[in-house]
Design a protein around this nucleic acid. Structure first.
Length: 843
RNA sequence: GGGCGCAUAGCUCAGUUGGCUAGAGCGCUUCCCUUACAAGGAAGAUGUCGGGGGUUCGAGUCCCUCUGCGCCCA
């Protein structure tokens, strides 16, 4: 045994993290069968900046559960992944190196970027080739990932770092492409030319899950359409007059009597003189504007529905750059159109409004309104809708059977907390289209397909050329399909590669497959899948959680995991969502250094599952106090008992009563942990711990020192040892460093590979301690009121209490005399408890 | 508009199927350097459990309703 003179938390993180690495205590034992494994589908953090308190918070919750499961004897499959694939990385590369990707540029060997970090504000990004851009992506993510790993190790995450993956690495690309090809073969993936939400800045299609509504100012402009029979005008209101040239119909609600006689007739558009029909559709809102609206191809998603369901013609005028196309669509007055050709949407609106004023077809003043506008969640300009060919995976958005099946899958998962299931169902039931998985970006997993090019040089999208699974991963922009030569690329009669990359969620939705080496290592996969637990934030239920469910449902006909544990948000102390500026000032590493890692973990683990939680340094101070106390009480107990004694040697009723309480805590702590409620385990353990140190230890200290002889001391020592041993293990998942520190004083192996405690079963009469401690409290109070120290001697204590209480009290009489420095206790039977304390005269 | 959550001490929060006098920590006040711990300990004060109604022998807890805050979706 080796107890230090002055226990300290300083430096324990590095010392024990190194030891754990050396002893490989977090290593997954892949020889265990599925029942002996606890598999965690760790969220791969986005490597596009820095880790913040939100990461520390939620990853601590998962780690506590992982450590608990390990102690119960499970082989814990706890991988880590880096989500380095996708737009956030591209964006960061652009900002870090001062470059942008231009696929038309040639590759430059040994390219040296103009900056490495913080290009000046006026710097214009240098266009570079796609391969050069990807090299810079690789360089930067490697840097970021080192920093991430260091922080996670310092946080004490018990991940098995040999299981590390990155969502852009070869294994992930192979898994992602293989899963896509399987979806394609089964008809779950398909490509289609269709109107698509488009971000004009990022130049990519955007999925429903990445969209958000933002309130933006707009204005209703009232426009006069002219009835074709010359009988007057029809007045409509629109917030997007610039789309007038794209108008293909007017629409009103079928039950709206104001327009009943107009349905089936036609009008001509202002400025452009296009004849368009007036149609009826239930999605038209009678109370909006004038009750009749123009349908354009396309102003918003409702236009798309109308266009599709009413089989209207296409008159698209917005290009992928967000500018008005240069040629007028068929039927549109070319001379009138020329004045807006090539303008941005904003410029076009101004021009059209001016023209309408001039022609007298704008009625009255524009009426300003606030209205929701669709944005890409990372974007800065409203989404436009353009027609393009995209890949989709069926997700129930267009198929009610599949939707119902996915809702049913949601019921197979146990949600923590349970109400999070509603978020999932809400999302699934509100889907309005399949999952768009293609992105017109660069740093991502490429679609593993080529297309034959016909004699006219046009790709045949209906007959994609598929690689063999054994060749994956492939890059269709450099690899050549079987049966073709490289010279045939992009030539008539040859082939062309699909230029797009998969949505980042299309890869991360396969995180269980990537981590579990699906198909590459079927033996491993069978031992970990379906996994036990998916921890994640509730904000990505609609993306990561749902897409994972879709992939697993298609591929395996099962859920990907049995439990979904949703963590809450970190809020500023003033209850607002943690601001960036604040998050940057308070860095996790700074807090680890200031309070110790265990203290920060304590703060995180105190928050109940799924509950938004205020950032609180006060809680960290409490955590530090707890860790310090644990070291000190360990030193005390081990100093007095030498770590000897077992539950069977406990004989004194006071000790048995304490053990009874301890057993109850173990039972409760265990069932809470088993149901993922780490916070409850911590709270129960902690409150017992403080009671143990403040009351029980003080009560039996004298006896343990031998004040009443060997046998009573032996019982106390055994009880102290058993309690300490149990408490160190109960705290181990929360305070991994402090518990390891004091555990190793008297054990040669790690507390984290020790067995999770089970009740001793020897406890008796827990209620006995209540009257004993009540009397002790009265004595303490008397001393405080007399303003003397707690060691001040007491001459005499007279206790009046009911007979039953006095019986209980009798068992603790000896300990009370010691703990209170009391010379004598007299007892009298009475109705209520009364304690009279007579202090010894001061010297 | 639909869904979900929250409201308990000055602050942050516990309070599991209804059950003794509603708890903890922080903060505040007083005292104590005591041989595990002064980065500590002992003691104390602090509540219309958001409002209203209902069920019940009994409601912080269950039901209804209202108010306020937050989140998700449309």
């Amino acid at each position: 045994m080796n107890v230090p003179e002055k226990p300290s938390l300083d430096g324990i993180e590095v010392r024990w993290a190194d030891t754990w690495d050396r002893e490989e205590i977090h290593r997954f034992d892949r020889s265990r069968d599925r029942d002996g494994v606890f598999a965690i589908d760790t969220p791969p953090p986005t490597v596009s900046g820095s880790l913040h308190m939100g990461h520390v918070f939620s990853y601590t919750h998962t780690d506590a559960i992982a450590r608990y499961q390990r102690m119960t004897g499970k082989s814990v499959f706890y991988p880590m992944g880096w989500d380095d694939n996708g737009l956030p990385t591209e964006r960061r590369v652009q900002n870090y190196f001062g470059v942008r990707c231009d696929p038309s540029r040639p590759y430059i060997a040994d390219f040296d970027p103009p900056f490495r970090g913080d290009p000046p504000k006026d710097h214009r990004a240098i266009p570079i080739s796609r391969p050069n851009f990807l090299e810079l992506c690789d360089e930067l993510v490697e840097l970021d990932e080192k920093v991430f790993e260091e922080l996670f190790r310092r946080l004490g995450l018990s991940v098995d770092w040999t299981l590390l993956y990155a969502t852009i690495d070869e294994r992930s690309r192979r898994v992602s492409q293989r899963a896509f090809l399987r979806n394609l073969a089964r008809g779950e993936a398909y490509s289609q030319e269709a109107p698509t939400l488009w971000d004009v800045d990022f130049q990519t299609a955007v999925a429903q899950a990445e969209m958000e509504d933002r309130d933006r100012p707009g204005a209703y402009h009232r426009l006069a359409f002219h009835r074709s029979d010359g009988s007057g005008d029809v007045e409509i209101a629109t917030t997007r007059p610039e789309l007038l040239a794209a108008c293909v119909a007017l629409v009103a609600h079928p039950d709206d009597e104001r327009f009943a006689t107009l349905f089936g007739t036609t009008v001509t558009t202002p400025l452009y003189g296009v004849e368009v029909p007036i149609v009826a559709h239930p999605l038209a809102q009678p109370d909006k504007g004038t009750g009749i609206a123009m349908i354009c191809t396309f102003g918003d998603v409702t236009d798309v529905i109308w266009w599709r369901e009413l089989q209207l013609p296409m008159r698209a005028i917005i290009s992928r750059s967000g500018r008005i196309v240069t040629e007028a669509p068929a039927g549109v007055d070319a001379a009138a159109f020329e004045s807006i050709a090539g303008l941005t949407v904003k410029q076009a609106q101004r021009a059209v409004v001016e023209q309408l004023i001039a022609s007298g077809e704008l009625l009255g003043e524009a009426e300003p309104i606030q209205h929701p506008v669709k944005f890409y969640e990372r974007g800065e300009r409203p989404l436009e809708i353009v027609t393009s060919r995209q890949w989709y995976i069926r997700n129930g958005g267009r198929d009610s059977d599949l939707r119902a099946a996915l809702v049913a899958r949601g019921e197979e998962v146990t949600w923590h907390p349970t109400h999070m299931r509603h978020r999932y169902e809400n999302w699934v039931e509100g889907l309005n289209g399949d999952w768009l998985i293609s992105r017109q970006r660069f740093f991502g997993v490429p679609f593993p397909v080529w297309y034959p090019v016909d004699a006219d040089g046009e790709p045949d999208h209906d007959h994609p050329i598929i690689p063999d699974e054994t060749d994956l991963p492939i890059d269709p922009s450099t690899d050549v399909p079987a049966g073709y030569t490289a010279e045939q690329r992009d030539t008539p009669g040859g082939f062309t590669g699909d230029p797009d990359v998969l949505d980042t969620w299309a890869t991360s939705s396969l995180s269980p497959h990537i981590a579990g080496c699906w198909e590459d290592d079927p033996d491993l996969f069978s031992r970990v899948f379906p996994m036990d637990m998916r921890p994640q934030g509730h904000d990505i239920i609609r993306t990561w959680l749902f897409s994972s469910m879709v992939r697993s449902h298609h591929e395996h006909g099962s859920v990907p995991w049995a439990n979904a544990a949703l963590s809450g948000w970190i809020l500023d102390p003033d209850r607002k969502k943690m601001s960036k500026s604040k998050g940057n000032v308070v860095t996790p590493m700074g807090l680890f250094e200031q309070y110790g890692t265990d203290a920060v973990r304590y703060w995180a683990a105190s928050a109940r599952p799924g509950v938004d939680t205020a950032f609180s340094e006060e809680q960290m101070k409490v955590g530090r106090k707890l860790a310090t106390k644990l070291l000190n009480v360990s030193k005390f107990v081990l100093g007095i008992s030498s770590g000897e004694g077992t539950a069977t040697e406990i004989a004194d009723p006071v000790d048995l009563a304490m053990i009874a309480r301890l057993d109850a805590v173990v039972t409760e702590a265990t069932s809470a942990f088993a149901s993922f409620d780490y916070a409850r385990t911590l709270e129960r353990t902690e409150s017992f711990f403080w009671w143990f140190t403040d009351d029980y230890v003080e009560l039996v200290k004298g006896r343990a020192y031998g004040s009443r002889g060997e046998a009573p001391a032996a019982s106390a020592k055994a009880a102290l040892t058993v309690a300490l041993d149990t408490l160190q293990r109960l705290f181990a998942p929360f305070l991994p460093f402090a518990t390891e520190e004091c555990w190793r004083w008297w054990h040669s192996s790690s507390v984290h590979t020790a067995e999770w405690p089970i009740p001793t079963g020897v406890g008796e009469r827990p209620e006995l301690l209540d009257p004993v401690l009540e009397v002790l409290a009265r004595v303490r109070r008397a001393k405080t009121e007399a303003k003397v120290g707690q060691r001040a001697p007491v001459e005499h204590v007279a206790v009046t209490a009911p007979a039953g209480t006095l019986d209980l009290l009798e068992a603790g009489r000896g300990d009370l005399l010691d703990a209170g420095s009391i010379s004598a206790i007299d007892t009298t039977t009475g109705d209520t408890l009364d304690v009279a304390v007579q202090l010894a005269p001061s010297e």
